[in-house]
Design a protein around this nucleic acid. Structure first.
Lengths: 240, 240
DNA sequence: TGACCGCAAAAGATATCATCTTTAGGATCG
DNA sequence: CGATCCTAAAGATGATATCTTTTGCGGTCA
């Protein structure tokens, strides 16, 4: 039994139409972070669909990082205030599916971090510099625990992106670190750690001295060195 | 059908556990693009949950760009081969939620495209150069239709990223263009279009001549000019 | 103030129907 | 006899309805 052709045209699923509806409203600024979207039942009712369809749409919107869902009385769906981790996750998934290795990622990371260092040298506030100093001191005290040292170093790099006062760089660096950095740093030894620490000290000096061009070049070289080390590591580990 | 109390500890939702299961398998390379995951019913059965839960999980995995779902006989869920558009969308959502404007985005874009131009000047193949020339010719013939001209220009920029043979730059540029470029270019007139065309010609010459440093500097200046224009535009449009 | 309880809301299960898509088989035409 | 087109069946998601279970907020009462 076929439906009359006039009414047959509804290929995009109802859930996807609901998703588009919310997404478009967001981009047209009709929804803002924190806004209440409604409960499953309300959404289903106002859009004339079943609760399952509303659920499907909310699952998708949740995965897209657009809404947060709370249970219990007073619960329901609200527009989130943003969650960079989700975006980092999205990049990580795509890079994994496209089978992209650390070298390509670190090349791009060099450009992003180079600009971050340049802007940081132009715009870093006293608070930014203080935060960087604190992280540097913390890393110094962690030379005995190389995994913890690595994490502190990652935070130092991210703090430079923050000091650039460009949030795009912050988001990009988060996502790139998420895929470029191994959980444990296999070839890192204390000598290398000291060299990294020295590079970070020098970076901080250049930022404090307001030398954007030098900061950028130094950062690019620094990330370049990390890339070299990672490439050598990868070659060395063809077998174990 | 109630679950035995022994197995009742399940604070994270069952759908989210199913999502994690697939996600982890992907990152551990136990799943590869194209692999068949199963149908809704099969997934529900093998994980001991209802079809609703399996659906919820598949909606999430679909939004994350991990699986594709096909209907009909022989349908079901498969690991995708990647979809950069989804990732671009994720960045766009986050930038919108964090209320980031075009200037910040174009600053980051300058760094990404600068590196793309530098690498393109080092690595572009004959085919890459040919593609760039074709796009340039196409843009030249579109001076009468400024919207079409804008789209051709965007493709030209993306082709440079492709010529860099670094896929991360391609992904990043797609996502940044997605949010930085207005659908219609309000202040673009024919004189500006000619200047853009001239800049693109010069870029192509530098890439063909294998002058990485110059290509990078020129590209950074080029994107910088676009940024200036966009900022002026934004200021001019406080009111209409 | 604090513990408790009620209720609202999502999470999950089950059954059923609708719709889409592929495929295989049969009818038709050259 | 062979190729092609049509059609019907089968297999899968899409959508609806209705139900139970779990969770967490908020008000109430001691």
């Amino acid at each position: 039994m076929s439906v009359h052709p006039l009414f047959a045209r509804r290929s995009p699923t109802m859930a996807s139409r609901l998703v588009s509806h919310v997404r478009n409203a967001l981009f047209e600024r009709r929804y803002r972070p924190g806004d209440f979207l409604g409960t499953e039942k309300e959404l289903a009712a106002t859009h004339g669909v079943s609760r399952i369809v509303a659920r499907d749409a909310l699952r998708t919107l949740e995965a897209m990082g657009i809404v947060e869902i709370a249970r219990g009385a007073g619960g329901g769906a609200r527009i989130t205030h943003g969650n960079p981790a989700l975006f980092a996750e999205a990049l990580a998934v795509q890079l994994e599916l496209a089978d992209i290795d650390a070298e390509e990622i670190l090349a791009a990371q060099g450009a992003v971090e180079g600009l971050a260092a340049e802007l940081a040298a132009q715009r870093a506030t006293k608070a930014d510099v203080l935060a960087l100093k604190t992280l540097l001191t913390e890393a110094e005290s962690l030379l005995h625990d190389l995994d913890a040292f690595t994490r502190a170093s990652l935070r130092f790099h991210l703090a430079i992106a923050d000091a650039s006062h460009n949030r795009v760089l912050h988001y990009q660096l988060i996502s790139l670190q998420h895929v470029s950095w191994p959980n444990r740093n296999r070839t890192l030894n204390r000598a290398v750690a000291r060299r990294i620490l020295e590079a970070h000290r020098r970076l901080l000096v250049l930022i404090e001295a307001r030398q954007p061009r030098e900061a950028r070049e130094f950062m690019e070289a620094h990330v370049g060195m990390i890339r070299e080390r990672r490439v050598a590591e990868a070659r060395g580990s063809v077998c174990c």
